[in-house]
Structure formats: structure tokens, C-alpha cells
């Protein structure tokens, strides 16, 4: 087995003043793996993703990503490029007036020329099935379209890992299926936070739950999982 892409050891985290959400999380993501992460609201799933890309600093524990230990803000610049985090709310992620500008924002930050950035953006939009959306206004998109454009903005940076925070939250059945199909077609290793086991099961290689601030294997039915991971 090759080396883990992201490795967490004994990660602890509390929100001030003293709300502990993570109490010693151990986790490793191997290449090609697709991990589903379930658990009740507020149990620390989003926090965990934010720690992986250095948006939050753990109070204890060590974090390694792509073969190096990561501690300082500067260490995470590379991590954020290689591990793309898709936010829960499209309105947080999409801030440019048009879709093409938003998708090209990441590549431009990575010092691509405008011409290359536009080419990458157009290609990425095709990949998620949004050809012809280039000049659409981001805040006028539907919920499902926003989610796919958010995904495209991250894919345009060519990440090795995708971190998806509730990719199907507040979507209708058709949009959910569309997001699922797009994700299934992608080669990246993934961590998918979701409440929907029906969505996760066909898509992931294993499913973890959170219990008492730790990650635990989760193989129960949805109802049992809910009652156990309180």
C-alpha cells in the first residue's frame, strides 16, 4: 500500500470557550480511496475538513499531507492546491460575476496565463456537464448548478484530493443524481461529508462516523447510525 495522501494523528480541536468537537482523531486517506463521513449536525465533520487544509489550527495532534508534515500557514498553500475543498454553500464559494471568471480564479492564482486559465476553465465546465454556462451570472444559478460550478472551480486547480462538504445538501433528486454521476466519473481520492447514506454507499469505498469526537467505522443502517453517534 502506498503512502497516505493525508494523515491525521491525535487531532484535537475545541471551539472557544470550551466546546470540544474533536478528541483525538486518527485518519489516513490512501490514493484512490473515497471515504464517506457521516454524523449528526455539529459533530465536527466540517471542522475536520477545515483542519485538513489549514483553515483551522488543531489544538493538539499532527497533520501530514502529500508526504510532508504541515504546521504553518505557508505549509498549507500547497495543500490547498492539491486538496480542493468544496464549500457547503455555493454563495460562499462563488464570488465572481460570471461563471467563467469564477472557474478561472484558481488557475489565475496559480500563475497561469489568462489564455491557459480560460482553456482550463472551459474544459472543466465541460467535465461537469456545464458547457455553455461560461457567461452566466453566478448568483442567478439554481442550487444544483451552483453546486456543480463550485465543484468546477475546485477541479480547475487539478487537485489530487477532493474534500466535499455536503455536496447534496438542499438539492432535489435530479440534481443529487447529477452531482453523484459527476463525482463517480472523477479519478481523485475523496472525502465526502454527507447525511445521506443512499448517496454515499454506491460512491464510496468506506464510510466513517463520528462518535465522541473520534472517527469510527460506520456500517450500521442509517437509523442505527443516527442513534449511536449522538
Amino acid at each position: 500500500m502506498s503512502e497516505a495522501l493525508i494523515r491525521l494523528e491525535g487531532i484535537e480541536f475545541s471551539y472557544p470557550p470550551d466546546r470540544e468537537v474533536l478528541a483525538g482523531v486518527d485518519f489516513a486517506l490512501s490514493p484512490g480511496e473515497r471515504v464517506g463521513l457521516v454524523g449528526p449536525n455539529g459533530c465536527g465533520k466540517t471542522t475536520l475538513l477545515h483542519i485538513m487544509v489549514g483553515l483551522l489550527k488543531p489544538t493538539a495532534g499532527t497533520l501530514g499531507a502529500f508526504g510532508k508534515p504541515r504546521r504553518e500557514e505557508a505549509d498549507f498553500h500547497e495543500v490547498r492546491r492539491r486538496a480542493g475543498l468544496v464549500f457547503q454553500d455555493g454563495d460562499d464559494q462563488l464570488f465572481c460575476p460570471t461563471v467563467i471568471e469564477d472557474v478561472a480564479f484558481g488557475p489565475l492564482n496559480l500563475d497561469k496565463s489568462p489564455r491557459e486559465a480560460r482553456a482550463v476553465a472551459t474544459e472543466t465546465l465541460r467535465l461537469v456537464g456545464l458547457e455553455g454556462f461560461e457567461e452566466r451570472i453566478t448568483y442567478k444559478l439554481s442550487g444544483g448548478e451552483k453546486r456543480l460550478v463550485s465543484l468546477a472551480t475546485i477541479l480547475a486547480m487539478k487537485p489530487d484530493v477532493l474534500l466535499l462538504d455536503e455536496p447534496t445538501g438542499a438539492l432535489d433528486e435530479a440534481s443529487k443524481q447529477r452531482v453523484g454521476e459527476v463525482l463517480r466519473g472523477l479519478p481523485q481520492a475523496m472525502i465526502i461529508v454527507s447525511h445521506e447514506r443512499g448517496f454515499l454507499e454506491p460512491l464510496t469505498t468506506r464510510i466513517l462516523g463520528m462518535s465522541g469526537g473520534k472517527l469510527v467505522a460506520n456500517s450500521q443502517s442509517p437509523i442505527a447510525a443516527r442513534s449511536i453517534s449522538r
Partner: peptide
């Protein structure tokens, strides 16, 4: 709070305090 989340999302996409134009 939204402002903070937007900032985080931008950091995740390599934002370093500068905007680049798609159409020079």
C-alpha cells in the same frame, strides 16, 4: 461570518491578495 467563509474559500483556491483579469 459570510465574509469569513468567502475569504476561506478564496484562500483554498490560492488567493494571495491580488486579482488577475481573465480579459487583459
Amino acid at each position: 461570518e459570510r465574509g469569513e467563509r468567502i475569504m476561506q474559500a478564496m484562500k483554498c483556491r490560492g488567493f494571495r491578495g491580488r486579482f488577475y483579469v481573465l480579459d487583459p
